[in-house]
Design a protein around this nucleic acid. Structure first.
Lengths: 218, 218
DNA sequence: AAGATGCCGAACCGTACGGTACGGTACGCA
DNA sequence: TGCGTACCGTACCGTACGGTTCGGCATCTT
């Protein structure tokens, strides 16, 4: 059984990707620029100026602009960690609590400034260049969190508290119930804080609905 | 009670927005460019060349590049129509059939080339410029389809086939069950046809799940 | 002490884009 | 026949960006 814990740690993002601390700091500033002004603000000159480094160093470290962006994604992904915590036997109540925690963390992750900015960037470039950034973002970001959820669901099934055919499909149901169209609306520019405030209270209903669909009555 | 029917009609998109047929044709070409090459391909010179018109005319008709994009959105929205068809009394079976049709149409709309391209464009520009395009897209695109769904849900409640507190919330549940993360994955560049093929069969399960949650057993 | 390395800051280059201006043409109208 | 209007095609302008180059400085190594 797992519990999902999200925490941010700048150094972890850098060292996880085999980067100098200085390079991590540069990526941090680049992310700041991206969050603040979108893709338009993410110019090589702008990053160099904001990070007090030279463009020469940027190109030496990251190759080109796309390399910089890729590094930003992996760096950011390195900061978000999901911690596995084994616990005692799963009961209906603890399962529900874990699902609620997952829902809350999921909403937190999706509504984060940097997450939204990176998703916007990857989506904006998805048309040209065969979805490389999109795959990267998917791989480094969504994959882990969905793996955690799958593990939680699997534990629920083993404890005979949940019933479903496909864990992936069940996860899709859980995700849809929690997120609905919140993420898209945030990406389109709706006030993220307001939407988060609107959807957080619904998380409980979403979990209850999921348990109605897939819970084993006991 | 409503049935949702989606059809495309080029002329309707133009005249609905008070545009010349020629201007509609230009917007059509512009949409083609956008679908084909993403935002990078949507240059004023490129549109002029592709549509055999002069840049001068583009600026006279649409003001500037943003005006062109806005016109493209409203033009495209004008092509997608939801037709209200009144019918006889709603039964459990017809309600289910209508929900299934809605799910299918929703998946069709979200996975359409032009829809994806416009959503990518609006999302890419959501950071700068106070989400103007995003609001426009939301207003002209999502709003109508959600209104139709709300009407259907309301009819279901009136016929004592559905039970829910908030129609908006129920719609959110239905939407989440149908779409899950399909839309986002498409926007990030995953093969849209493959995803559509993956999610279409699930539509039935989604509707069944929705009826499990909100249906009145009879 | 002397070279090597790593980096900064600034200048530079080619290109591409948004927007404007202008000459030329087809068409409607008096 | 002459004039106005609307439009096309092209050339043009200013700017901004990605990427490269270079001079200079500070630190490290031998």
């Amino acid at each position: 059984m797992v519990i999902l814990q999200v925490f941010a740690q700048a150094k972890a993002g850098a060292t996880a990707a085999g980067l100098t601390e200085r390079q991590g700091a540069v990526l941090e500033r680049a992310l700041g620029l991206l969050v603040e002004g979108g893709e338009r603000a993410l110019t090589t000159a702008g990053v160099a100026r904001a990070a007090n480094c030279s463009k020469e160093s940027l190109y030496k470290w990251f190759g080109d602009r796309d390399g910089l962006i890729s590094a930003m994604i992996t760096y950011q992904a390195g900061k978000v960690r999901t911690v596995e915590v084994s616990a005692g036997a799963l009961t209906a109540e603890t399962l529900r609590r874990h699902l609620l925690a997952f829902a809350s963390d999921l909403i937190d992750v999706l509504s984060g400034d940097v997450s939204l900015a990176l998703n916007r960037l990857a989506i904006g470039q998805a048309s040209r260049e065969g979805a490389g950034l999109g795959r990267l973002l998917q791989e480094r970001g969504r994959r882990q969190i969905s793996k955690r959820a799958a593990a939680l669901l699997e534990a629920g099934r083993k404890a005979k508290l949940l019933a479903f055919d496909s864990a992936d499909e069940a996860y899709g149901t859980l995700y849809g119930l929690i997120v609905s169209d919140m993420h898209l609306r945030m990406l389109l520019g709706e006030n993220a804080a307001a939407l988060k405030k609107e959807f957080s209270p619904r998380a409980e209903k979403a979990v209850d609905a999921f348990l109605t669909l897939h819970g084993v009555k006991g």
